[in-house]
Design a protein around this nucleic acid. Sequence first.
DNA 1: TCTGACCTGCGA
DNA 2: TCGCAGGTCAGA
Length: 270
Amino acid sequence: MPELPEVETIARQIRQKFVGRRISRIEANQSKIFQNVTAEEFSRMLLNRKLERVGRYGKYLYWVFDDISVLFHLGMSGIFIKEKSFSRYPQHIHICFNFENGSRLYFQDVRKFSKISLHKNSPSFTSLGIDPTQPNFSLSKLKNLLISKSAAIKPFLMDQQLIAGIGNIYANEILFDAKINPQRRASSLSAREIQRLHHSIANILRSAIEHFGTSYSAYRTLGGEVGENQKFLKVYQRKDLQCPNCGTSIAKTVMNSRSTFYCKKCQAMK
DNA sequence: TCTGACCTGCGA
DNA sequence: TCGCAGGTCAGA
C-alpha cells in the first residue's frame, strides 16, 4: 500500500535522521523479503558503512553507501520504525539497523510482500516508467504514453512500467480529480482530458506528500504516526457516501481485481 | 490483457 | 469462518 507519497515521506524522514550515520550492527532474520542476498550476507555487507544518500524512484526507496546500495520495495505493509527499544518487541520485525550514535531503525513487514536487494553502486530503474514527480514528466510525455494504449485508464495509471509510483488509492483519487471514468480507454482521452489528468496526477501526489501520505491500513511514518491524507480522500473507500462535488452516491466496482471508486455523474462515460 | 497466488490482520 | 485489503509477478 505504500505508494509514491508514503515512500517519499519515509525517504525524507530517513534522510533527515540517518544520512551521515555509520551502521555499527545489523540484526536481520532470514526471510523471503531478501532477494539477491541472505540476511547474514546483508548484515555483513553493510557493517561499518556510512549512509551517504537516501533516494526514491516510484515506489522504491534506496540507500546509497560508498560503493553499494540497498533497494527497498515496501510491498503492502513494509514500514520503518525509529525506536531505541520496545517495552514489548513487535512481531514481524525483519531487520534492526543499529547506528553508531545509538539510534536504531527497524524494518517491519507483516505481510512479507516487501523486497530488499543489494546492488553495486546506485540502483537503476530502467524497467520502470517515468516518476511523475520528476520535472521531465511533461504533458507531451503523458500524451505519448496514452496514445495507442487500449487498456482502461485506471490500470494504465497503475502500470509501473509506464508511470512509476501510482497505486490503487491515488489512481482512484486522480481520476476523480480529473473527472475521468476509470473504465475509459487510455487512448480515447481528449486533449482537454489529458491536460486535466496531467494536472491531477501532479496535484494529488503533491498534496498527499504534504499530508505525509495516506494511512489506510499499515502505513506509518518513521515515528509511528499515521499520515494525514486519508482525511482528504474524495472517493477511495467512500462507497455510498456523497460525492463532494455533486452529492451523488460514490459507486464501487472491481477492475483488474482492484476496488475502484468513482462518481457516476462527475466521471460519466463519454 | 487478465487472473490468481503470495501473505496476514481485521471486521462482518 | 470467510472475505477483503492490494503490489507484483507468473501463467493462461
